[in-house]
Design a protein around this nucleic acid. Structure first.
Length: 491
RNA sequence: GUCCCCAUCGUCUAGGGGUUAGGACGUCACCCUUUCAAGGUGAAAACACGGGUUCGAAUCCCGUUGGGGACGCCA
């Protein structure tokens, strides 16, 4: 009867008739880094694809290293990425009693035992194991020892009675069947001497209680999966489906971790990347759907599956992220981009009043195809928000110096009576002026650009002048003619 | 050291016995052009090595090398 029930349970999982429940389970010991963000994304996508639930569990059982700011950073990061959980987060430490109870149960059922080893003793065992070329460090010396022989005054830990022989097979959806000889999986600690649960115990108990059906996480947990599978069984449960995704490495191939300068997602936000660009980039890092590169979130949900996940690790490539970001900036609505760029300009000390805002919106169409990040976009937008006289950059100054005498004056005079003040009229006017002077359009446009923007490169000149308006353009040309803005400290 | 995983252009990858080995980013050239971008066209660029299996291996098997991960009273 029991067997039959288990079999039905198992089949249900296999045929995925039961709804999917996944979780992202970061430990709050630092910010949400890029690898964690991808794990969260894959979990989120998997849940959405299957119409299941995506939960967040904060693994804060390490009281020393868990911090409040880290929790906030993780929550903020997920929020910004659009990967907020479906339910309020589960804080693992709040479930200690349940974990403790599970450990005691295991003890009752002879699946666990008390171990009175001291740190120094364990240290010696580890050294010896390593020297002897064994993975398994703890030798199980308290496994069958009579607790009556326990040294006085020592608080014991509770260890799992792991199988000693045979092998544990992790049927991983990404890595395939991975076999571990049980003699290399040691009796892990479930409950510390101070009575707090370890990660190994807490994950399994929580995954059971939260009804987790699929565990999608980093490759670095693959060996843990074998240990946890045994724990699930000791607790009378079928383990969830595992999918261990390869890790992301730095551009040089080394490990991309907190300790190796990996950035938090907040850093990507600060550097001007759009969340949808980061999501698209992360999705394609380790997952593929044929030749598809630019994938909307809707498509990602439709297409995402575990089969598309590759088995080799990948390297982080900023150039590629940048190109995707440029794409999404181009796609983004102008008002949104203005909202994103305005605070950046303001924090750099530029005042964004009504006029500046209007100019930004009117000029955004010409600005956005030229930017790879919001940082670049904000910089390019300076031509619309700086107050006169504009600082003239060195290259622009050269263009001004090279302009034939009277050329700019002529343009200014022609602009004064130009009707209407439109791009086509502006262009027609400039072409006429250049032709009359026997010059190519570039010979006029370049110094004019320098005068009007203070730079040698900008969006289309006629567009810029149209956005700025007749009065502002006249003023800027006048400033340039009078040599204003030269040697100004550009900021 | 032991155990586990991985290996296609510089990077991300498609391809899973017969392909001119495909795409994207980056690079280079050209076109467009008032600048810079964007856009368009094109080029260079890869199956780590050695053995098998097979009529035929990038694809399957073994080994080597290289890379990565795990070996905590961290998660």
């Amino acid at each position: 009867m029991l067997v039959a029930a288990a079999a039905i349970h198992h089949r249900a999982r296999i045929f995925s008739t039961m709804s999917v429940v996944v979780r992202f389970a970061p430990s709050p010991t630092g910010f949400l880094h890029i690898g964690g963000a991808r794990t969260a994304l894959f979990n989120w996508l998997f849940a959405r694809h299957h119409g299941g639930r995506y939960l967040l569990r904060i693994e804060d059982t390490d009281r020393q290293r868990s911090t409040e700011p880290a929790i906030r950073a993780i929550l903020d990061g997920l929020d910004w990425l659009g990967l907020a959980a479906d339910d309020p987060p589960v804080f693992q430490f709040q479930r200690v009693e349940r974990h403790r109870q599970a450990a005691l149960e295991l003890l009752d059922q002879d699946h666990a035992y008390r171990c009175y080893c001291q740190p120094a003793e364990l240290e010696a065992m580890r050294a010896e194991a390593r020297a002897a070329g064994r993975v398994r460090a703890y030798d199980g010396r308290w496994r069958d020892r009579d607790p009556a022989t326990a040294p006085p005054g020592v608080d014991p830990v509770i260890r799992f009675k792991a199988p000693l022989s045979g092998e544990t097979i992790v049927a991983d959806r990404v890595q395939g069947d991975v076999r571990f000889a049980n003699d290399q999986l040691d009796d892990m600690v479930l409950l510390r001497a101070d009575g707090t649960p370890t990660y190994m115990l807490a994950v399994v108990v929580d995954d059971i209680d939260m009804g987790i059906t699929h565990v999608i996480r980093g490759d670095d947990h693959l060996v843990n999966a074998a240990r946890q599978a045994n724990l699930f069984e000791a607790l009378g449960r079928v383990p969830p489906v595992f999918a261990h995704i390869p890790l992301i490495h730095g551009a040089d191939g080394s490990k991309l971790s907190k300790r190796h300068g990996a950035l938090g997602v907040d850093a990507y936000r600060d550097q001007g990347y759009l969340p949808e660009a980061l999501r698209n980039y992360l999705l394609r890092l380790g997952w593929a759907h044929g030749d598809e590169e630019v994938i909307s979130t809707e498509r990602a949900i439709e297409w995402f599956d575990l089969d598309g996940i590759g088995r080799s690790s990948s390297r982080f490539d900023f150039a590629r992220l940048g190109s995707l970001n440029a794409h999404y900036i181009k796609e983004a609505a102008d008002p949104r981009l203005v909202d994103l760029v305005a605070p950046r300009l303001e924090s750099d000390g530029h005042r964004i009043d009504e006029t500046a805002r209007a100019r930004l919106e009117a000029g955004m169409a010409g600005l956005k195809p030229r930017a790879k990040t919001l940082v670049e976009l904000a910089d390019a937008a300076l031509i619309y928000v700086r107050a006169r006289p504009l600082p003239i950059e060195a290259k622009a100054a050269q263009l001004l110096d090279a302009a034939p005498d009277g050329l700019l004056q002529g343009a200014a005079a022609a602009f004064a009576s130009l009707e209407p003040w439109s791009e086509v009229e502006l262009e027609a006017c400039c072409r006429r002026l250049a032709e009359e002077a026997g010059l190519g359009l570039g010979k006029l446009a370049q110094p004019l650009r320098a005068a009007v923007t203070g730079r040698s490169a900008s969006p289309g000149l006629f567009e810029v002048m149209r956005v700025l308006g007749r009065e502002e353009v006249a003023g800027r040309i006048d400033d340039a003619l009078r040599g204003l803005g030269r040697n100004a400290a550009v900021q």
